[in-house]
Design a protein around this nucleic acid. Structure first.
Length: 641
DNA sequence: GTAGGGTTAG
């Protein structure tokens, strides 16, 4: 079919043209009919192959078919196929808009703009947009959406909205739902929200879910909740938006609560819902709820995002056998699956395996990205593999084409600092090509604390405070470092500086899931309903581990107090309360899983090790950075954290 | 026949 008309002699071709003109009002030329049919039914390749034939026969395809062809191209074709179609229609006048919007050229142009966007060729889309003689609300919305979704082009999206209004094209619900994704400051969002109300589009489900999402992404939970609560009739995605918002902002319990309400309201979860619920479980270490969700995930075996979320849930709940089994069974794995597994192993103290998985990933031909490399460097730094870390850092650009960015430099400072090579770490900071930011200095400060180097700590803290004068973390870490060194006057000075600025140290908090309920413990706070029995249990545990040689390490109390007071403060650290609660409520043979908001202190670490031995129970504690698996008196971190 | 919302790794 492709070359049929090319082989026709010229006179026959002319006859064909005449007959096509003659038949125009009765029936279409057979070639055009075939083309139209292929644009509806496919296959795409066959339709595409007809374009040259149409051209040489001098036939002009109708805009409806061309629009369909572009759509098929997005589904089945490549960007170069798309360019080919674009060139064809441009050469054959199919883009002329024929005033008054009567011509189909505008439709064809719009679908081409959208096609370029879908192929990630935003600049091609914009240059086509620039050349269009006429644009309607669809044209504008397509580019506004594309800019709102592109990295770092949100401002442009907002500018396009302004230009659109100047062009007297009124935004509709499509436009608002798109542009809301670009509203990343409270002021802009408030103004956009007001605009939607003004034109009566705020109750559109698409607009509403975008509004909720925008508020939640800004951390304005009340704003998001407000938009949600106003809803009279909604749909599943609106529910998904609010659940995702709670899950992302760390309120896992709130997310689960909404999930239950959603089901009561008669909606059944889809993969989007389940992904967010899993994320909530991940944040709260709710392994049992997560396992229940797993049962529903089985329905969506092809959904990679959902499976990756499940994998991460198992990793972050410290349940590596589950993670491992899932990873092996997953029908497909992408770079995110591999990165999740690498980081998961590293965070759980299994760095060597993490590096082995990285090798496996490469041997399977999956290309690592910058986040994968963060996981790899994390594995090196948390296992003290200084040489390996240097190797990956130095070769990542050559081997994988990934130029080390801030986060990788930060990993290196961590690697050197943790290993006690503080001078090298400082030298590394001074020599790196990027300007050190507060994150890097904070990493150095953490290492100084670990290795009790107060002078360097003070230097790092000053650098942080230069960049961020109100940084609590710097002041806390600095005063802790002085306290470690028994330099109480300096420690107090630093505390005073914090108090003067109205800052308070964040209290330690630990969580544990028991029978699908999350119990929260705050350091020194005995307000839990069963505190009495918890304290009894704590005393029992302390009695048992005293026999194993436990001595409270009061050096971890960072205030200058009498020994007994220090012991008391230590005794009621939140993770100890949670461990006691866990030994009372965790079934035989099941590990105790705890999450906490701050890094674990040395005394609690020793306590957990000994309890794991005396009670014959595995204890898993997740802190903001990594895990500790305590078993039979030892910890997976090898006391290196 | 053209445009829109939520969901995964550091």
């Amino acid at each position: 079919m492709n070359s049929l008309f090319k082989r026709l002699p010229r006179n026959r071709l002319a006859a064909t043209r005449r007959s096509s003109r003659r038949l125009h009002h009765t029936q279409p030329h057979p070639l055009l009919a075939t083309f139209s049919r292929l644009c509806v039914e496919g296959p795409f390749r066959a339709a595409l192959a007809l374009l040259p034939d149409l051209a040489s026969a001098g036939l002009r395809a109708d805009p409806v078919s061309l629009t369909r062809l572009v759509k098929l191209c997005v589904r089945h074709g490549t960007a170069s196929d798309g360019r080919l179609i674009h060139r064809h229609v441009a050469d054959h006048g199919a883009l002329s808009h024929g005033g008054g919007g009567g011509g189909g050229g505008l439709f064809v142009s719009n679908s081409l703009v959208s096609m370029y966007v879908k192929f990630g060729l935003l600049d091609d889309a914009l240059s086509l947009f620039d050349g269009m003689p006429e644009r309607n609300v669809v044209t504008w919305t397509t580019v506004v959406a594309a800019l709102a979704n592109a990295d770092g082009r949100k401002e442009e999206a907002l500018r396009f909205l302004v230009a659109m209004r100047r062009d007297e094209v009124a935004p509709n619900a499509y436009t608002f739902s798109s542009v809301l994704g670009a509203c990343d400051t409270p002021g802009v969002l408030a103004a956009m929200h007001a605009s939607t109300v003004k034109v009566g589009l705020d109750s559109d489900v698409f607009v509403r879910s975008s509004l909720i999402d925008a508020y939640m992404k800004l951390g304005d939970l009340d704003g998001g909740r407000g938009v949600f609560d106003e809803m009279v009739t909604g749909d599943l995605v609106v529910w998904n938006s609010i659940i995702a918002g709670f899950a992302q902002s760390g309120d896992g319990a709130g997310a689960i609560e909404l999930f239950v309400r959603m089901k009561d309201a008669g909606f059944s979860a889809n993969q989007g819902t389940l992904t967010s619920v899993l994320r909530a479980c991940t944040g709260m270490v709710m392994l049992e709820v997560g396992r229940q969700v797993h049962a529903h995930v089985l329905k969506y075996e092809k959904d990679l995002i959902l499976h990756n979320a499940l994998l991460d849930m198992y990793c972050k709940c410290g349940s590596l056998p589950d993670a491992d089994a899932l990873f092996r069974r997953m029908p497909q794995r992408d770079v995110i699956s591999w990165s999740t597994m690498i980081s998961g192993l590293a965070q759980n103290g299994r760095s060597t395996e993490a590096l082995r998985v990285f090798d496996l990933m490469k041997s399977e031909g999956v290309t690592p990205n910058r986040i994968t490399l963060v996981g790899v460097l994390f594995a090196c730094s948390h296992a003290g593999l200084v040489e390996d870390g240097w190797y990956y850092f130095k070769s990542m650009e050559k081997l994988f084409g990934i130029r080390p960015e801030r986060e990788h430099h930060n990993c290196m400072v961590d690697l050197l600092g943790r290993a006690g090579k503080l001078d090298e770490a400082v030298e590394f900071i001074h020599e790196m090509s990027l300007d050190p930011d507060s994150v890097i200095w904070r990493t150095l400060l953490g290492a100084c604390r670990m290795h009790k180097n107060a002078n360097l700590a003070a230097y790092a803290a000053r650098e942080i405070l230069k960049l961020e004068p109100d940084d609590q973390g710097a002041r806390v870490l600095l005063s802790n470092t002085y306290a470690d060194l028994r330099q109480w006057t300096d420690a107090e000075k630093s505390w005073k500086a914090m108090r003067d600025r109205g800052m308070k140290k964040e209290p330690g908090r630990s969580w544990i899931e028991v029978e699908k309920q999350v119990h929260v413990f705050i350091a020194g706070d005995l307000s839990h309903p069963s505190s009495e029995s918890i304290v009894l249990e704590l005393n029992r545990l302390i009695g048992r581990i005293n026999a194993l040689g436990y001595v409270p390490q009061t050096e971890f109390v960072l205030q200058d107090l009498a020994i007994e007071q220090k012991e008391d403060l230590l005794k009621y650290h939140s993770e100890k309360l949670a461990i006691a609660f866990g030994t009372m409520h965790t079934m035989e043979g099941k590990p105790i899983r705890i999450m906490k908001n701050l890094r674990i202190c040395g005394d609690c670490h020793a306590f957990a090790k000994l309890v794991s031995k005396s009670e014959g129970k595995m204890i898993i504690i997740r802190d903001p950075v990594r895990f500790h698996h305590f078993q039979d008196g030892a910890c997976s971190c090898g006391d290196y954290w």
